[in-house]
């Protein structure tokens, strides 16, 4: 394997990280919204959120990615491989993050909400000033765990041709007729990335305790 090939693997790793982190950046708040909708038992929306979570937790990322990439254009919306990839990862991780956030909300001490209500706080204010500052600490270890799982699922987007690590490795393999060296190198890069996330998870667990969804 040439230095050039190694560079393109690193570039692939960059793509994996950018797309995964973008997915997380969308999926974490989306998961919180879903969790709040279910927690507040908003009629109609709550059921929709429950079905969404159940469905997405059973859906392979590969299949969802193909659906988004091929079906969205039939609705008349242009979508590139990158956007489809980011959407896939965001939708999948949102379902799992919803469960982490929801566990945190369900474990939240009810007395504090009562107290805030007694002081005349509106629901939004309660959420912003009382609940969320404590909730994110409890949810963080679980969210980092989901982020680790997302990175492991991210090669799914190679199926629509996004040039992330896996795709880069197969391409180098096809060019050189030596698939194993780029594959092993790519595996090593993944292991390194995931070990960083596992370390991050241990750190958050130690600092914020074993959070609700962890």
């Amino acid at each position: 394997m040439t230095a050039n090939a190694f560079l393109s693997l690193l570039q692939g790793a960059g793509v994996t990280l950018i797309i995964s982190l973008s997915g997380i950046a969308i999926g974490v708040p989306l998961g919180l919204v879903l969790a709040l909708v279910r927690w507040r038992r908003i009629p109609g929306l709550s059921q929709v959120a429950a079905v969404y979570v159940s469905l997405l937790r059973s859906t392979p990322a590969v299949t969802l990615c193909l659906l988004i990439f091929f079906a969205v254009p039939t609705l008349g919306i242009e979508i590139g491989a990158w956007s489809a990839g980011i959407m896939t990862l965001a939708f999948v991780t949102a379902a799992f993050n919803c469960e982490v956030w929801r566990a945190g909300l369900l474990n939240f001490p009810h007395e504090q909400v009562e107290a805030a209500r007694a002081f005349g706080m509106t629901p939004l204010l309660r959420l912003r000033r009382i609940i969320f500052p404590q909730l994110w600490r409890a949810a963080l270890p679980g969210l980092v765990n989901e982020a680790t799982l997302l990175i492991k699922a991210s090669p799914a987007i190679a199926v629509i041709g996004v040039a992330e690590i896996t795709r880069a490795a197969t391409r180098i393999g096809a060019q050189t007729y030596e698939p194993l060296p780029p594959m092993l190198t790519a595996t090593g890069i993944y292991v390194a990335i995931i070990l960083v996330f596992v370390g991050l998870q241990r750190l958050t667990e130690r600092r914020y305790g074993r959070g609700a969804g962890a």
Binding site: I151, K152, A153, S154, P155, A156, A158, T166, A169, T170, G173, P179, L180, M183, L184, A186, T187, Y190, V191, I194, L195, V198
Partner: peptide, 15 residues
């Protein structure tokens, strides 16, 4: 447990 499944599929398939 640190390796993505697709990577292992490739390693088995080519390896």
């Amino acid at each position: 447990r640190c390796v993505p499944f697709l990577m292992l599929v490739y390693l088995v398939y080519y390896g």
